[in-house]
């Protein structure tokens, strides 16, 4: 069974869990993802791998509480077991030959950006980390990013942590100050990645964006995760999850991401009400 070995609250809406999954840990690489189910009636939820430890056979996931399943997951504790945990899925981040990279993360996307930054750093690549959050209470992995980068820029929407502004403001400043990147890797909300890609296109810097669309099986079977890249339909689960950011149709991806929003909102409320009743 997939036991929760460690649970840590990173901020009020983001939780880290280390899961016992030796076969997944053995193969996991930055950029890949897993699919889990909390219980027998649970939905399959894809989450990108935040870290892994091949020796003790564990895989770390970091998730934001947004819907019914993540709410349920957050109510599970160390010693509890997940029903299913499958992976690693998708292709690993391409890191070969990169000398200088800007890793741009937003919100909980930073949890996925971090292992990429770490791997690049370990390979001797110069890493600049630009991370953004809404406010200081939501900042995660600050020390970890600092340790994995030679330059670290923290941005917040309200200026309560680091500088006030968007990650694109910081990235523009870096590029305009003469920093030359082989590649920009961006992971975060779709709208943020869209604007990061617009910016880097302007400067002609190759950019990779990590997509996290709705999916079921994660092996190429359902096609629910399809998106348009350079005019072609691609499946995020097998062709990605990372794609050339300058070719992704972000507007379509955003529309598709909202497909079950009303259902999710209702399901989340139902689960919250259930927990409230239990407390009473």
């Amino acid at each position: 069974m997939f036991e929760i070995l460690e649970k840590k609250c990173l901020n009020p809406t983001v939780t880290l869990m280390r899961i016992n999954a030796p076969m997944v840990a053995k193969k996991a690489e930055p950029g890949q993802f897993i699919i889990l189910r909390t219980d027998e009636n649970g939905e399959r939820v894809p989450l990108t791998i935040a870290d892994y430890d091949r020796e003790n056979g564990s895989v770390t996931i970091i998730f934001q509480i947004v819907g019914a399943t993540t709410e349920k997951l957050n109510h599970m504790n160390e010693g509890d077991c997940l029903q299913d945990f499958v992976g690693p899925l998708g292709r690993a981040t391409h890191t070969d030959g990169l000398k200088k990279v800007a890793v741009v993360g937003g919100g909980v996307g930073c949890a996925i950006a971090y292992p990429v930054a770490k791997k690049l750093h370990e390979l001797g690549c110069e890493v600049h980390a630009v991370v953004g959050f809404r406010n200081k209470d939501l900042v995660i992995l600050e020390d970890e990013f600092k340790a994995a980068s030679s330059k670290f820029v923290l941005m917040s929407d309200d200026g309560s942590a680091g500088e006030k502004g968007l990650v694109t403001d910081a990235l523009r400043k870096l590029i305009e100050s003469g920093e030359q990147y082989d590649e920009v890797i961006t992971i975060g909300p779709l709208i943020m990645m869209k604007f990061v890609c617009q910016l880097t296109k302007e400067f002609g810097i190759k950019t990779v964006a990590s997509m996290n669309p709705i999916m079921i099986d994660g092996t190429g079977m359902c096609g629910g995760c399809r998106l348009t890249v350079g005019g072609e339909t691609k499946f995020a689960c097998v062709d990605g999850p990372e794609f050339d950011g300058h070719l992704i149709d972000f507007d379509e991806a955003m529309a598709r991401g909202a497909m079950y929003k009303p259902f999710e909102r209702k399901a989340h409320e139902d689960v919250c009400n259930l927990y409230k009743q239990e407390v009473k």
Binding site: G220, M221, G223, T233, R256, A258
Partner: peptide, 20 residues
């Protein structure tokens, strides 16, 4: 298991599924 699509306009709209 890999579903085919027709590659026609609008196939990625919300509400379009593969049978799979």
């Amino acid at each position: 298991g890999l579903p085919r699509f027709m590659n026609i306009k609008g196939e990625n709209l919300n509400g379009v599924y593969s049978a799979n």
